[in-house]
Structures are given as structure tokens and as C-alpha cells.
Amino acid sequence: MMPTLDFRRDHLFVAVLALLVIVGFFLPSWMRFLIQTAMASGLVALGVMLQMRAGLVSFGQGLFFCIGGYAVGLLAAKAGITDVALLLPAAALAALVIGLVLGLLLSRYREIFYAMLTLAVSMILYGLLVKAASLGSTDGFNIPAVSYFGFVPDQAARPDWSYALTGVVVLAGCLGALAYLRSGAGAMLDAVRENEIRLSYLGTSPRVLVFVVYAVAAVLSGLGGGLWAISSGHVDPEMTYWTTSGQFVFVALLAGRGSVVAPVMAYFLLELLRTYALDIAPNAWQLILGSAMLAVIVLLPRGLWSLVARART
């Protein structure tokens, strides 16, 4: 039986991830870019995974991915603020503020209603963005090159810098998530999933715990979105469309709830698979994805054990 509250080995996993990030630096540029976007998106999947620990499936995590991306995009392209020292904190802050406000409402909901309501708010943003002509509607808009704490790398060195930035922030995000899971608020997430009523009778508020996990996930996802925007130099409303959120759920599900680095690594695996699958069978990618998802659900019930056996006391 896997201990649910033991994260002692996770520092090791984060170290392994750090090593992979360094190795990635020397890989061919297409592969390195793949790692870079996968890491940024993986941070969002990590946010979904944290909520899954509490038994909650967010089907609208793209909302914060998009908020982070657009915060960076708007500041850089419209307000002329192009330094990452301001852009990333702005992405995190924007996601946090929206997360705190929505969290007040969402922390009352569980199960399918949580999934539906997170989906609804993400689609509200989508509905707004596709009609916002000044933001490029469905096409979104491009983001100018950014500077790093005042330093402006030349054209050739830009990919190196954005890769390094992504690596550092994602590793920090994983460490942050780890610290959170080791804290009281994080350690009790499993208890929220398993038996909320018992938990309140022990003297704590499950609703506050859900509120906190929603906000933490929002910040991680906002950072992921900001990094993704800087990496790809582009944002569009697709970031908050439900299929994007569905992909985050898919990765979190695939990765399981065991380790904070799992969603990041799983995302890379997914992107790698996609690259080859799109070459071989361009119209069968979703078919492969869906089949894999069914396989995980049917054949690896251990990964889903917690959700399946919940509240049957």
C-alpha cells in the first residue's frame, strides 16, 4: 500500500526532473522546445492533480492557463512591459485574484457540480475573448520578445533564455507544490476526498481546504500560462477552451496523484507521442488519446483507486 502522506522521496524526484531539464538544454532545438511547452503545460496539469487529491476534477483549468497567458500578453504587447521579472508575477497575481474570488463560490461544490462549474467559468472567458476584436478574437495576438531582469538576449540566444526560465520556474513550482502538500492544508486534501464529514468533526473546515487548493492550483496554472505565452510568443482563446482543459485532466489522470513531478513528465510524454502520432496518422491522434484514457481508467484502477472507492464508508 502506497503511503498517501509520505513525500520524503519527492525531493529526489524533483532533483531528477532538474537533471532532465539540464540534459534537455543540450537536445536538438525542436525537442527542447517540446520540453519547454510541456513543462509549462505540465504546471497546469499539476494544478489539476492537486485538486484531484481532494477528489475534485476541474474541467476548466484552462481558465487560469489563459489568464496567465493573457496577463503576460497584454502587458507585453499592449502596455510595453516586457521584462519577465514583472510579467510572471503579474501572471501569477492575476490568476490568484480571480482564483480567490471564484474560489469563494466554487469551494461550496463537489463532484460533478465542481466539474461543471469550473467548466462554465472557463467557457465564459472563452465567450468573451472570441468576441474581443481588439484582442484578435479567435486568432489571439502575438507577444514581443521579452527581457530577463533588464537583460535583452539577442535573437539567437532567446530560445536558450526562455528555456532556462521555464525550467527554473517549473522546478520552483514543483517545489512549491511539494511544500504545500507537506503542510497541514495539503496533507488534509486526501482526507477531504475520503470523508469530508469526518474531517469537519475533527475540527477543520473542508471548504477552506478546497478554497486553498483551488487558489494554489490557480497560481500554478497562471504561471504555466505565462511561461507558455513567453515560450510560444502567442496567446489565443483556445487556451481556455474546454478541450484544452480536458487535456490537462487527461494528463493529471494519466500521471496519478503520487508525485508532484509526475504531471510535468506525463505532459512531456504526451507531447512526444503527439509529435510522432501526428506524423504517422494525423487524423487518429484523438483516437489514440481516448483509447489510452479508457485503458488507464479500466486497466489501472490503482491510479484512480481513490476516486473510485470514495465515500463508500
Binding site: 476534477v57 474541467f59 460533478i112 466539474a115 480536458g246 485532466v249 487527461f250 489522470l253 484523438q286 483516437l287 488519446l289 481516448g290 483509447s291 484514457m293 479508457l294 481508467i297
Partner: peptide, 10 residues
């Protein structure tokens, strides 16, 4: 929900 999502993709 996740099962039917997988079916949707397929």
C-alpha cells in the same frame, strides 16, 4: 465523465 470524454475523443 472522463470515460465519456475518452469516447468523445475516439
Amino acid at each position: 465523465v472522463l470515460v465519456t470524454y475518452a469516447l468523445f475523443l475516439i
